[in-house]
Amino acid sequence: MAQPIRVLVAKVGLDGHDRGARVVARTLRDAGMDVIYSGLHRTPEEVVNAAVQEDVDVLGVSLLSGVQMTVFPKIFKLLDEKGVKDMIVVAGGVMPDEDAAALKQMGVHEVMLQDTPPAAIVATLTRLVNERGER
């Protein structure tokens, strides 16, 4: 039996807009994945700790408060400090195109914004995990 993909769906920062994050959590569960939801108002440190302890395949961070350029550099720094090299990091929410491009430069594997169809999110995560291979 293939191992379900493990995903941490995380809300970082102070914004409470969790509609998207919870729709994504439910979509991924219904696609057979194991989803850990961080709950609201988490810090980058808390999220990275959880992602490492849970050894998730994918860390998905949802943001609608515009703090992406503060949060993601921290996440990558923390992952680096913990010696984690193979975690797939994706972003979701609302942000300007320039920021989305900058995040991809920084190492975010995929940026999936508002109105990304649920099936597309499942397909993207599945593809990214397959590309990564066994770990």
């Binding site: 379900p4 959590a25 439910r26 991924l28 569960r29 219904d30 696609a31 057979g32 994945m33 194991d34 989803v35 850990i36 939801y37 961080s38 709950g39 988490r42 440190e45 808390e46 700790n49 959880a50 849970e54």
Partner: peptide, 18 residues
């Protein structure tokens, strides 16, 4: 149904997260 899950217990343990 799907074999998937949402694992929610961590949320109630956030005092320990650091």
């Amino acid at each position: 149904y799907s074999g998937g899950s949402i694992l929610g217990d961590r949320i109630r343990m956030t005092d320990l997260s650091q």
